[in-house]
Design a protein around this nucleic acid. Sequence first.
DNA 1: CGGACATTTGACAAGCTTCAAGAGAAGTGG
DNA 2: CCACTTCTCTTGAAGCTTGTCAAATGTCCG
Lengths: 251, 251
Amino acid sequence: MKTELDAPACPPDCHTCSLRKTEAFVQFSQEKIDYIQAFRSATMELAGGRQIIAEHKSSTRIFTLYQGWAFRYKTLSDGRRQILNFLVAGDLIGLQEEFVDGATPGVEALTNVTLCVFPRDGLWQMFRDHPQLGYDVTWLASREESLVDEGLLTAGRRTALERVAMLLVHLYRRAERVGLASNGSIAFPFSQQHIADALGLSLVHTNKTLRRLSRLGLHTLEEGRLVMHDPRGLENISDYYERPLRKVPLI
Amino acid sequence: MKTELDAPACPPDCHTCSLRKTEAFVQFSQEKIDYIQAFRSATMELAGGRQIIAEHKSSTRIFTLYQGWAFRYKTLSDGRRQILNFLVAGDLIGLQEEFVDGATPGVEALTNVTLCVFPRDGLWQMFRDHPQLGYDVTWLASREESLVDEGLLTAGRRTALERVAMLLVHLYRRAERVGLASNGSIAFPFSQQHIADALGLSLVHTNKTLRRLSRLGLHTLEEGRLVMHDPRGLENISDYYERPLRKVPLI
DNA sequence: CGGACATTTGACAAGCTTCAAGAGAAGTGG
DNA sequence: CCACTTCTCTTGAAGCTTGTCAAATGTCCG
């Protein structure tokens, strides 16, 4: 019995990958795409809530998220959980496993997801055969770090209201970037527990803060969609300003 | 008028670099070290408190920290500061500037530091000429991200006591790793403000927590040195266990 | 000796967490 | 098809952790 997932599969041919058609990604040469396609060992779909990489366990695979949302997280031994960052289409998953031993974060599918799968032990060969792709991997790693940097600033130094405002803007901008926004709104599959765990807040306080924010009229959150009424207002509250988007590599 | 710094310069010849003699780093081939030395454009010393890279400003250089402590940080517009991670001998500085535009973190020398300087625009050529070094750069980037991951878990989900305990263990282990520990103690140039900014706590509460912890007899902090009396006890409090050390590349 | 800065402590306020409980939505099985 | 369970969202109340304000002490340095 196969799990029923409505997530679309990646196209078999990377040259026709629909992500590459968006504004978000650097144009790649045919040859580079050929290499990536040869490197790819499979595609797979996974239901929301399933682990893409289990915490503390090393995986032999790395992934590119093709469709859906996921998140990286760490937990303390008594169960307290911190979400480190959210992952959206185009994000590379599992790179750290290659370089960091021991306590690597877990990665969980938040919605149903579609993934491209690569063998982790082919990574070094990729650097050797195609340094440009190596450079791109570093680019993605560095960019992910900057997301975590921002998250740490948020958890460490922003108030609850600022945190929530910043999360809404941030998620909206990231979704918009890869073509997931329409009419100033995005599908919003995040539970308040996800938000709480990402921001370092309790569930209850997250709820109260979210309500306080929506009473200000800057956004609405209903029927699983986030509607942005005043992104600027949210940016001002959170002191968080999303940069003009720069194209990034897609592997 | 030249600033008087007691920091030792890097040796002119990378082959005799004293860091490479420690246990902490992967053995490099002569040829690889040759390449690094050719890539290095200068060495420099900087007094504690000076900016290595100013926040939001892009630098044209990347650095390897040879001696001393530094830290990466971000600030909010009203001045609230979050220290993202501390940097110690062997750490690479300024890689993000190559890949992330806009709001890049600042990097400040915490003590007097000695740095090896590399031209940032030679980075891509390094990947191309010497993929193994490219791979090493990715390694270091990924490893730094895992430090920030841990910091985010701390700021988001640990209590004040747990945070402080974890910071002490963490800094001790990192110093020990590169040969800076002796008799279970290390030089400890961090002010309580640094600790507060790294942990997302206020200065006053940091002080009270630090005192509470030292009253437990697990460590002492005096005359600028941190003496660890019971590292295990601190690890238990913080639920933070430093992994057995794995050698890392040194560029 | 004076000034700048880090550390320390007490008192008080506030933000956030925990506890508790109800409402609504969604899925399950008889 | 409808009770039953489960999960998420919501709200109120109480308490504790942490932040803010204020001030004293100590240290380093010119």
